[in-house]
Simulated assay, not measured.
Amino acid sequence: MSLSTPLEIVTSYHRAWTSGDVALAMTFIAEDVTCRAPGADLEGKPAYEAFIAGFAPALTGIGDIAELADGERVALFYYPQTAATATAPAAELFTVRDGLIRESILIFDRLSYGPPEQD
């Protein structure tokens, strides 16, 4: 099945990595992808894959996904659930061209995903 819209590509990518299939998720990513994330500017598919593969195993679920598409840009808003938090929101703005994700701007509170504080 060929995915034809940027929204279909982004949601397929998101479903893949959030279910733990990082290899499938990377089939939607361009070799020269860029990602701006809190604490990291990533250049190229290997760096992006390492970033996603490092976080994906920590997921225990995904809550409340909202999406907005406008041409080649797609925004997702969701709650990545981990042992540390289930209530910290994340937002991503993707740019899709020629059937691949070329750019991601990721916004989330890094401190929320750290280890829980000890009393």
Results as ranks from 00 to 15, higher is better:
Asp64Trp: 10
Ile9Tyr: 08
Glu31Met: 13
Arg36Met: 11
Thr5His: 00
Gly61Asp: 09
Ala23Glu: 15
Pro6Ala: 06
Pro6Phe: 01
Pro57Ala: 12
Gln81Cys: 13
His14Ile: 02
Leu76Ser: 09
Ala16Arg: 02
Gln81Leu: 11
Ala37Leu: 04
Thr95Lys: 13
Ile52Asn: 00
Gly44Ile: 03
Gly61Arg: 10
Ala53Thr: 06
Val96Cys: 09
Cys35Trp: 05
Ile101Glu: 03
Arg110Gly: 01
Arg102Asp: 06
Ser112His: 09
Arg102Tyr: 04
Ala16Tyr: 07
Arg102Ser: 14
Met1Phe: 11
Ala23Leu: 08
Asp21Met: 10
Phe77Val: 05
Ala47Gln: 13
Thr60Lys: 13
Asp32Met: 03
Arg36Cys: 06
Asp41Lys: 02
Ala16Gln: 06
Tyr78Val: 14
Pro115Thr: 11
Pro80Asp: 05
Thr82Cys: 08
Pro116Ser: 14
Gly54Val: 05
Ile105Leu: 12
Ala50Gly: 08
Ala56Thr: 10
Ala58Leu: 10
Pro38Thr: 04
Arg15Met: 09
Pro116Lys: 15
Ser2Gly: 09
Ser4Gln: 14
Ala30Asn: 08
Tyr13Asn: 07
Gly114Glu: 15
Gln81Tyr: 02
Arg73Leu: 13
Ala83Gln: 13
Pro57His: 10
Thr34Ser: 14
Ala30Tyr: 06
Glu103Lys: 02
Thr18Glu: 05
Ala30Trp: 05
Pro57Gly: 12
Ser2Val: 13
Tyr79Ser: 05
Asp41Gln: 10
Pro6Gln: 06
Glu43Asn: 13
Ala40Val: 09
Glu43Met: 13
Arg102Ala: 14
Thr85Met: 08
Ala69His: 01
Gly44Leu: 04
Asp70Ser: 15
Glu43Ser: 15
Glu103Gln: 11
Ala53Val: 07
Thr18Gln: 07
Tyr13Asp: 05
Ser104Met: 07
Pro80Thr: 03
Asp41Pro: 07
Ile62Ala: 05
Leu100Pro: 12
Phe94Val: 05
Ala30Val: 12
Phe108Asn: 04
Gly63Tyr: 02
Ala66Met: 12
Glu8Thr: 01
Ser2Lys: 12
Asp109Val: 09
Asp21Asn: 15
Gln81Glu: 14
Val96Met: 14
Ala69Lys: 01
Ala50Phe: 04
Glu8Lys: 04
Ala90Gly: 11
Ala23Asn: 14
